[in-house]
Design a protein around this nucleic acid. Structure first.
Lengths: 161, 161
DNA sequence: ATATTATTGTTGCAAACGCAACAGTTCGAC
DNA sequence: GTCGAACTGTTGCGTTTGCAACAATAATAT
């Protein structure tokens, strides 16, 4: 893997530089995640679902879909996998017969905690290149951007109706 | 699409908050990209390749693979598509008979410029939620992180040998 | 020179994902 | 209450992508 330090100097705007960097960061973080999670038999997607669950009421599938920003069908198949693996189980929602909750089994809970600890440790290690102060700074920026960009999507969706 | 403003407060560390935000940002940016590029018949992946090309010597496939951080096979298939579409053509490298260069056709060049302008406009619009000063700040952070994270991957790769 | 190793691009295969369509259920207007 | 619209989860299907294996070529060691 040869990482050319390809020049952001050819890029005309700061907006575009930011764009490229976010893309690269996402990819590089994902590669790191796989290395941490693979020994536990988890993909990043499965891990992200696992983290959102608990052993009590769990979460509805549509909630998982919304929070992870993936299609409902993707969640259906992820939960199928994880149910087969014995990590989660589906529970019918008593107040809405369309809906189901997904909750962790005891095996799933143990795996969740183990994976979470490992990932957390790795993340703090990787993010450690930035000081705590810088991290707080970044979080503020990102929250601002995420909110603005999400609202824009909601606006566009409304216009479609 | 219901965007719960799900709490980052449950998240224990700043490192993890950053992680989630980068993930969300990437996804939301990608959704925006698709909206801009779809009218031009381009996917984000095709666009990213197009931007790296020119009409002269072009780029080698392995270079595209390295810069975009995707598998070589992915580039092969992307270039297949784009060659069929008439946007690019393969040129044998005279100094290395294994290698090929990919260069833009005149159609490809026109498309590249059109897509680039549209994307650039959209990006500045979307990134505009942050001031120029904040953007510069972010770029500095990201460069720092990208460099550190990439070096880490290279280290791990070397250990494998 | 020759043999081993590395690199470049391609292909088969499987996994992951989104979109559209669908059935069952709930909500809302009237 | 009733009917149409909206929501929830599932499935079929096509697209995208990475990994492993491969052939052709280049680089390196001896």
């Amino acid at each position: 893997m040869a990482f050319d330090d390809f020049d952001l100097d050819n890029v005309p705007s700061n907006a575009h530089r930011l764009y490229r960097l976010i893309h690269d960061l996402y990819v590089v973080l994902d590669v790191g995640d796989r290395e941490v999670l693979q020994p536990l038999g988890l993909t990043p997607s499965q891990y992200r679902v696992l983290v959102l669950l608990d052993a009590n009421f769990g979460q509805r599938l549509i909630t998982l879909s919304d929070r992870l920003l993936v299609a409902r069908s993707t969640i259906t198949r992820l939960i199928d996998q994880m149910e087969t693996a014995g990590w989660v189980h589906r529970i019918d929602d008593p107040s809405d017969r369309r809906a189901q909750h997904v909750a962790l089994t005891s095996v799933g809970l143990a795996l969740r905690n183990q994976a979470y600890a490992a990932h957390e440790h790795s993340l703090e290690d990787r993010m450690g290149v930035l000081g705590e102060h810088d991290q707080q700074h970044l979080i503020d920026f990102f929250l601002q951007m995420r909110t603005a960009l999400r609202n824009r999507i909601i606006e566009i969706d409304s216009q479609r109706e």
